[in-house]
Design a protein around this nucleic acid. Structure first.
Lengths: 336, 336
DNA sequence: TGAATTTAGTAAAACGTTTTACTAATCTTA
DNA sequence: TAAGATTAGTAAAACGTTTTACTAAATTCA
C-alpha cells in the first residue's frame, strides 16, 4: 500500500521518449531555442506535464552549487515583528523559486556563530540577518566570503554593506514632534542599553529634538524583570516633572505599562505614552497606545527584492541600501 | 579579495592524507569500527578538525535520498501561537541535525496544495502540518506517499494518523467548570464556524458541561470584521441573561473585547470573559483576561520527538498520538 | 556546385557523497 | 602448517542533474 511514489528522473523520460538526457535538460532550462525543434520541445513538455516530473533539487544543487535557499537569521522569530516580516518574505521568495530557512539568534553572539557555522557550506545562497550585539567583525567575515548578505533592522556605520532598515533618527524625531504638538513639554525616553544601530539612532533622534534629554537605558536581558522594572521606577521617581514617555521598543513599552499600572499612574492624564512597533496589544490597551509602526510589508519586499537582485547580478556592482520611514499612529495615550 | 572560501571535499582529504575516499567516508559516518585502524581514524579525524571539513549536504541528499529537512506547514506563521511553537521546534530539530522550513496555509486549501506540491519531491524528509479546512482527502494522500506526517493542533476522527494536539474537550470542560466555580450561571460560547477538530471539540466540551448551551459560531474570515462583529452583537442582544463568555480562540477574544468595549459592557461586573490561548495582550488588558493556555514547549517537544522517531524507526510500527492538557490561568476578568 | 553556416541533437564528464563487493595481509587454531 | 577467520583497507558504481564539446544533416549563398 505505502509505496513511495516512484520518482521519475530525466533518464526515465529520455528512455521513454527516445531522446537524450541533454535535450531534455535544455528544454527544462529554457535553453532549447535554436537548438531543439519545436516538435521535440512540445513532445517533452507534454510528457513532463503528464507525469508531473519535478527535478531533483539535491542533484541540481550539487551540480550548480546553488540551493535556492535563503537564510533569515532573526533576533527572535517568535517576536511578532520578525515573524510578520518572515511570513511576508516567505511568500515573495516562494514566488521566485526560493525557500527560506528561519532561525533565531536570541541576540546572542555565540548562538549566531553556531548558526552561521551550520549554514556556511554550499547549502545556502544568501543571508538576511539581524546581527546580534557585538557582531561587526563576524559580519565582515561573512560578507567577505562572497555570498549575498543583507542586514535587516540594524546596520553598521563604519562598514560598507547591504541593508534594509527603518530610518530611526527621522522616525524618532517625528514621534517627539508629534508629542510636542499634543502639548507635552517634558518627554522622557526609555531605551535599551545597546550598541545596535536602532537603539543608538532612536536615542540620537530623541536627544536632537528635545531641549533637555532625560533618558534611561535598560539592559537587554533585564527587560520586564525585577532589575529592569526597578530601573524604570527609579527613573520616574527622579523625574517627577516628566509628562510623557517614549519607549524605544515594544517589549520595553509592555514592561513599562506594567510598571505604570503598578504605580497607579494614569495614562494619558499624568503621563503620555508612545512606543515603537505596533501590536494588537497597543490598540486594545486601555487607553490605546500611540505607536510608530514599521512598514512591515515594504521592509519584507525590499529585503527579498534586494536579495534576489544580488543573487542575480552578483554582489558587487549592485547596492541595497534602504532606509524606510515609520508611520505614526496616534491613539488615546497621547490625547491629554 | 572576495574569494569564495574554497570548499574542501573528501577527495581533497584523501589525496592529502594518502588514503581512499571510502576510508574517510567510513570514519565520518562512524562505520570505521573493526574496519579501519585507530591510527588512521585519528589521523583523518584530526585533519578534518584542522581544515574544518563539512560534508556537502546536496551530495549527501542526492546519494541517500534524505535531506535532513522537516517542513512545518502552519496555519499562519505570524500568529504568536504558531511562531512560538515553530521557534521551539527549530531549536530542538537543529540539535538533531535537522533544519525546519516553515510555511503558512492561511487556512486555504489551494495554498496548502500548492505548498505540498512544492515539497513533494525528494527534498523533504517529514511533514508537520496543521491542515486547513476540508483537507482530509489530501492529507490521506500525503500520508499514503510514505513519508512521516504528523498533524498538529487538529486531527481527523475517521482516520488513522500521527498527531500532537490539545485535549480540547477536556480543557474546555475544565474552563467551564472554573467559570461555574466563580459563580457564573449563564455561560455563552463564541466559536468559529469550522469543521476543524479544535473548533468541534471545544464546542462539544462546552455543550456537555452546561445545562442550556448558548453559542454563536463566527465565519472564519469574518472575525474582527463588520459581519463577524455584527453576529456577536446580535448574539449578545438576544441573550441578555448571559453573565459570562468563553471564546474559542484568541483572535475571537480580541475581536470580542473590541465589541464589548464599543458596547460599554463592563468586564467582569456585567460579563465574565475567558478565552483559549494566552497572549501578552490578555495579561495586560484592563481587566486582565483569564485564559486556557496551551503548553507550547511540550507541544513542540512532542512534535519533534515524534517526528524524529518516525524518521528513525519508520512510519509503521511506531505511533505518535499525543493529546496534551491546557493550563487554566485565572485573571481579573473572571472575578465577579 | 561545393564550401560555409545553421539546425538539431548527443556523449560524456563532473558535482561530492555513500555503499557494495572486493583484496591482501595478518592472525588463529586444530 | 594449512585452512579459516579477522583486520585494514580500496575500487568503482550510483544518486540526478548541467554543461562542454562534439557530430551529422540540412540549408544557404556566391
Amino acid at each position: 500500500m505505502k509505496r513511495e511514489k516512484q520518482k521519475v528522473s530525466i533518464k526515465d523520460i529520455a528512455k521513454e521518449l527516445g531522446v537524450s538526457i541533454t535535450t531534455i535538460s535544455f528544454v527544462i532550462n529554457g535553453k532549447a531555442k535554436n537548438r531543439i525543434s519545436e516538435k521535440v520541445i512540445k513532445k517533452i513538455e507534454d510528457y513532463i506535464e503528464k507525469v508531473g516530473y519535478r527535478p531533483n533539487s539535491s542533484a541540481q544543487s550539487l551540480r550548480t552549487g546553488k540551493s535556492q535557499t535563503i537564510v533569515f537569521m532573526a533576533e527572535d522569530i517568535s517576536d511578532p515583528f520578525f515573524s510578520t516580516v518572515a511570513k511576508e518574505m516567505e511568500g515573495l521568495a516562494f514566488k521566485h523559486g526560493y525557500r527560506i530557512i528561519y532561525c533565531s539568534t536570541e541576540n546572542k553572539k555565540e548562538r549566531a556563530l553556531e548558526l552561521l557555522d551550520l549554514f556556511k557550506d554550499k547549502e545556502v545562497d544568501a543571508f538576511i540577518i539581524t546581527p546580534p550585539e557585538d557582531f561587526e567583525e563576524e559580519t565582515r567575515t561573512l560578507i567577505a566570503e562572497g555570498k549575498p548578505v543583507v542586514l535587516f533592522d540594524r546596520y553598521y556605520h563604519r562598514m560598507d554593506h547591504h541593508y534594509v532598515v527603518l530610518d530611526n533618527v527621522v522616525s524618532t524625531k517625528a514621534a517627539v514632534e508629534f508629542l510636542k504638538s499634543k502639548g507635552f513639554k517634558n518627554i522622557g525616553f526609555v531605551g535599551l542599553k545597546s550598541k545596535l544601530s536602532p537603539m543608538e539612532d532612536r536615542l540620537k533622534g530623541y536627544r536632537e529634538s528635545v531641549p533637555v534629554p532625560k533618558s534611561v537605558l535598560i539592559k537587554f536581558n533585564s527587560v520586564g524583570k525585577g532589575v529592569g522594572n526597578k530601573q524604570l521606577e527609579d527613573f520616574l521617581d527622579q523625574h517627577p516633572e516628566l509628562d510623557a514617555l517614549l519607549f524605544a521598543t515594544n517589549s520595553l513599552a509592555i514592561a513599562g505599562l506594567r510598571v505604570l499600572k503598578a504605580k497607579n499612574i494614569l495614562i494619558p492624564a499624568e503621563l503620555g505614552v508612545a512606543t515603537f512597533d505596533d501590536r494588537e496589544l497597543f490598540e486594545l490597551h486601555s487607553p490605546s497606545i500611540s505607536v510608530i509602526s514599521q512598514p512591515v510589508s515594504a521592509l519584507a519586499k525590499e529585503l527579498i527584492k534586494g536579495t534576489l537582485k544580488l543573487l542575480e547580478i552578483g554582489v558587487d556592482p549592485f547596492e541595497v541600501k534602504k532606509s524606510l520611514k515609520g508611520t505614526l499612529i496616534p491613539r488615546a495615550s497621547t490625547e491629554k
